[in-house]
Design a protein around this nucleic acid. Structure first.
Lengths: 131, 131
DNA sequence: ACATTTGTTATATATATAGTATAACAAATA
DNA sequence: TATTTGTTATACTATATATATAACAAATGT
């Protein structure tokens, strides 16, 4: 799989897994309907504990991105299933705020931040291995 | 002061303090050269421990936003002192990435995310082209 | 000069979070 | 039927978060 863990990061392992799966879906590496690897196999792949991956999967489910079918597997939700609610929009804005504020205080211009945002957006939209 | 603590938030108190001071500076509530309240007085104001505020101040210093003068006080750095380094730019982009990725996966369009970005800029009272 | 305020340092305690290690269970699956 | 699956439970270690006190020495205010 495409996930790379940084053991010494300040970001918890389960959070790294969550983010990289989200980025993988955004990039198109994984599509709606696809099944995620079992918590045991992914944990073995990454060299971490089963429960750590399990926590990540449940975080993804709480975000409405995957659906965990008990004793079967985890499936990526369709775009219809994960319709953007006003609550989710507010949350994204809430997440965006401290990042933008810090950038500005450090001396970045609005244009620089918009440019970085577009760069990130493009990174995620353009598949690494071609379509 | 303008800081409001949410005791039951998943975000640590010292991190809430750090973010709100950064937002305060971004908004212009506080300007370069201004002195932050002493760790003891702000802690008393917020009803939290001295060390919690102290941790926040040192986080702000590590980010290059304030300068702590031993046994005197904490001063907000000038925009020259906090010149944006390529390393800091990378960090901002790194912070931006998971937020944008999650938004996209949840079904937000590029326009929606750009719009939210402008809303955040407006909240922070930062002039943006075309607003 | 003196008292207060300041950040600093140290110690101690309590709680929560993160991560691992095993184990067992029951449903789904091959 | 045997294996794989997510689930649940227990136990343990380590780190992070937050508080509580106390003392120190430099800076500051009067």
């Amino acid at each position: 799989m495409f996930i790379q863990i940084e053991p010494n990061s300040a970001i918890p392992i389960y959070e790294q897994v969550t983010r990289q799966i989200i980025e993988g879906i955004a990039r198109g590496d994984m599509q709606p309907g696809d099944t995620l690897p079992s918590v045991r196999s992914l944990a073995a792949d990454l060299g971490v504990n089963m429960h750590t991956v399990n926590k990540s999967y449940h975080e993804l489910e709480a975000k409405g991105i995957i659906s965990i079918r008990a004793k079967s597997g985890a499936v990526i939700c369709s775009t219809e299933e994960r319709a953007l609610t006003p609550e989710q929009l507010r949350q994204i804005e809430k997440n965006l705020k401290p990042v933008v504020a810090e950038g500005m205080v450090l001396g970045a211009t609005a244009e620089q931040i918009e440019h970085m945002m577009k760069k990130v957006f493009a990174d995620l939209q353009i598949p690494v291995e071609g379509v």
